[in-house]
Design a protein around this nucleic acid. Structure first.
Length: 754
DNA sequence: GACCTGCTGCGGTCTG
């Protein structure tokens, strides 16, 4: 902010002053757009970004002008530099985006402005041809738009060239920052930024562009690990949209001939969404295909043009782009049925409403999805959540009669309305990504001493939860004769071994995530997309893919090709999709609150209201609030109302006590006599919290991330214990359950058993 | 415990 007070004659508000700070060519560009004034976040961002200053977090809904908030001042500064002594050597600003498609969108958006400002703009990702990249490397200048993986490639292929390329860098802009929070890729990005600043030997101001999330502190910490408090936060106040929400529950019919819940939901989607632009989030690819098929059949039956199309990561790029283009173009009514592919900010224009199939597990994801609709001024954001409710008859298992899918949807909406959002797993070490960064750092520098690597990655960089001893064990492992990726020179410097060189020099190394092997699905000469190799397929089988039915004609295993021909009709295979992934404790607790309350939310349809009342009836009749259990088929259902991490920790602790069972959502299905469960819980309650490293031995599938296979059992156990277990609360949780199960006096009031 | 994201340098073939 300016230090001199405005003069007495200056009657203009702050908006005019921000505008005045911009370079005249940028001002001219703004006039040409026909803008009367800057948006609030743009206005706030200009004085902070017109010269290198603090880190800045810009939080606003999609289409609120975040990109311009960052680039109007940043490109003004670049234009001013050209008025003076000329641009400094190297790129002046770097934009990092998570998707190639997003980089292409932003390139189109910024191209005109950059051209007017006389600032070159360079796209750099895997689809950009090598010639352009080489030219940019020879004469680095202006604005660089790049992916994290391509930036890693720059470091590994020419680490010593980094200071020359980024000598004049004034800002780093990170788009869709919220998508990086708490993920392997987010750790990678943070590590790259640390390495960049280390190579330049100075701090470079960071600008984070993020969707509105409940806790801005999370995004700030992600932008500048260790100093989130020092990040200037700009939040758009112009986001007062009307929100219309509904939870709708459909019941599977009891008679064989009647339609099932999925058919009823498809009917409602067809009737409600037809003729407009909508997104339907269906959770799993197979569910997407199943609904796309049902809606296509409904269109054909009525003899109307198709307007419902599938969109997911296994579909060929061309098919996906056709759907995106239809949505963006806007002239033909279009509904995309998708997984998470259309959650991020690829430009798809205005969407009238959003539907969610099945109860959401992630509130952050739900908020992101809701933000896709109602972006035009004066239009509400519309979200419908569809759940299937089992029959409430006496033959249905008790736990199903609690109507947990509907309860979960209601709880999720309540948390959404409260503005809550999941924080990242606080304890995870991310050893796979740390392994990647150790190898990448050695490649970048040619060699580095262990202490320097530790300081850069685990003290200054993002791997701060990794103890010095664990880091040393990781290095020993990478140098072990059976692994031999790194070796140590007599000067103590770490170097890449021959195998390490080979691993790092292959292009598949740059990303910190891996993709499973897949079949290519082909019909005639057209590629429809990919299917995972582990999916059982055989000739004559029927599959649904790209919204249509096919018969597998040939499986060419050696070529990884699946040849299919159109199927005339018949009954498609049944899918059981639904949203998976971790559930936070808070959502599980909110489900308890919903069941033990009396109020009927206004956002329920008749089916959801019936399901809520039916669930509460069982909840009350069996006194679940007090005793935390229901009788099960083969033993008992334990309801501790915990999120995935604590629930799984309890399950493993019970397993260690000889009680076998499985977890299903918030419920533990235990194959044991209630008396034995009580005894086991007593032992857990009376003992100190178990050693997470010992409990982690019971986790079967510890290899999950790209470089986990390089680690030994001990390191895998340390990693799994940190990320997937939480043992400190275990005795207390067990104690409450013991009290509940043994029917303690005075425990009749409904309260969460925490 | 589902889904999504990313990629270099070089040699071969085709087109104008």
């Amino acid at each position: 902010m300016t230090t001199s007070p405005p003069s007495a004659s200056d009657s203009s508000g702050p908006a005019a002053r921000s505008f005045d700070l911009l370079h005249p060519v940028v001002q001219r560009w703004i006039w040409r757009q026909g803008w009367n004034e800057l948006r609030d976040i743009q206005d706030d961002a200009v004085p902070l970004l017109i010269a290198p200053g603090p880190d800045v977090l810009v939080m606003a809904a999609t289409a609120a002008g975040k990109t311009e908030a960052a680039f109007l001042p940043i490109l003004s500064a670049a234009a001013f530099a050209r008025d003076g002594a000329g641009p400094p050597g190297g790129f002046e600003a770097m934009y990092i985006g998570p998707l190639k498609a997003l980089i292409n969108d932003q390139f189109r958006r910024l191209d005109g402005l950059c051209e007017m400002a006389g600032v070159p703009v360079v796209r750099w990702h895997g689809d950009v041809d090598a010639g352009r990249k080489q030219a940019a490397r020879r004469h680095p200048e202006g604005l660089l738009l790049i992916t994290p993986e391509s930036l890693e490639a720059l470091f590994i292929r020419g680490g010593l060239d980094i200071p020359r390329l980024f000598n004049g860098l004034r800002h780093v802009v990170i788009d869709e920052l919220h998508a990086f929070i708490g993920t392997e890729r987010g750790m990678h990005l943070q590590s790259l930024l640390t390495r960049l600043e280390a190579a330049l030997n100075r701090r470079v101001p960071r600008v984070g562009l993020s969707a509105t999330i409940g806790d801005a502190g999370l995004a700030a910490d992600c932008l500048r690990p260790g100093d989130g408090a020092g990040v200037a936060r700009l939040t758009s106040t112009a986001d007062g949209r009307e929100i219309r929400l509904q939870v709708r529950t459909y019941r599977d019919a009891t008679e064989e001939t009647a339609p099932d819940a999925e058919a009823l939901i498809a009917d409602h989607l067809f009737k409600t969404l037809r003729g407009r632009h909508n997104l339907v989030f269906a959770g799993a690819r197979q569910t997407v295909e199943s609904y796309a098929d049902k809606l296509r059949v409904l269109s054909e039956r009525l003899g109307v043009p198709e307007e419902f199309f599938p969109h997911h990561g296994s579909l060929a790029r061309g098919l996906r782009e056709q759907v995106e283009a239809r949505l963006r173009d806007g002239s033909l009514p279009t509904t995309a049925i998708c997984t998470t592919t259309l959650e991020l900010g690829i430009d798809i224009g205005d969407v009238e409403s959003v539907a969610q199939i099945g109860p959401p597990r992630s509130i952050a994801g739900l908020r992101q999805r809701l933000g896709r609709s109602g972006r035009r001024a004066g239009k509400p954001a519309i979200l419908r959540i569809y759940t299937a409710g089992p029959d409430a008859g006496e033959k249905t298992p008790l736990v199903d009669r609690l109507q947990l899918p509907t309860i979960q949807a209601i709880a999720a909406v309540r948390l959404l309305l409260q503005g809550w959002c999941e924080p990242p797993g606080p304890a995870a070490l991310h050893l796979s990504t740390l392994t990647h960064q150790v190898l990448a750092l050695i490649a970048e520098r040619g060699g580095i001493r262990p202490q320097a690597a530790h300081r850069l990655l685990c003290v200054e960089g993002p791997f701060r939860k990794v103890a010095a001893g664990t880091f040393a064990a990781l290095l020993r492992r990478l140098g072990h004769p059976s692994v031999r990726l790194i070796e140590q020179a007599p000067t103590a410097e770490l170097m890449l071994g021959e195998r390490g060189e080979r691993l790092v020099s292959h292009y598949s190394f740059y990303a910190v995530f891996q993709t499973p092997e897949e079949y290519r699905v082909v019909t005639g000469r057209k590629t429809l997309g990919q299917l995972p190799l582990d999916r059982p397929v055989a000739p004559e089988m029927m599959i649904i893919f790209a919204g249509r039915r096919w018969i597998v004609a040939e499986v060419r295993a050696a070529e990884r090709v699946l040849e299919v021909v159109p199927a005339p009709g018949g009954r498609p295979p049944a899918f059981n999709g639904g949203e998976a992934g971790p559930m936070h404790d808070r959502l599980a607790r909110e489900m308890f609150t919903v069941l033990s309350g009396n109020d009927i939310p206004a956002f329920l349809d008749a089916g959801a209201r019936d399901a809520l009342l039916a669930g509460r009836e069982i909840f009350t009749r069996y006194d679940v609030a007090r005793c935390s259990m229901l009788p099960g088929d083969k033993g008992m259902i334990l309801l501790p109302w915990l999120g995935s991490i604590r629930r799984n920790t309890l399950l493993l602790a019970l397993d260690a006590e000889g009680i076998r069972g499985t977890g299903d959502g918030v419920a533990l299905d235990l194959r044991a006599d209630p008396g034995d469960v009580l005894k086991a819980l007593c032992r857990i309650a009376d003992a100190p919290p178990p050693d997470p490293l010992i409990l982690a031995q019971r986790i079967g599938n510890k290899i999950q991330n790209k470089f986990d296979h390089l680690l030994d059992d001990d390191l895998l156990a340390v990693d799994a214990a940190a990320a997937r277990l939480e043992t400190t609360a275990l005795p207390g949780i067990a104690r409450n359950l013991v009290q509940a199960l043994s029917g303690s006096p005075g425990g009749g009031a409904a309260r969460h058993p925490d």
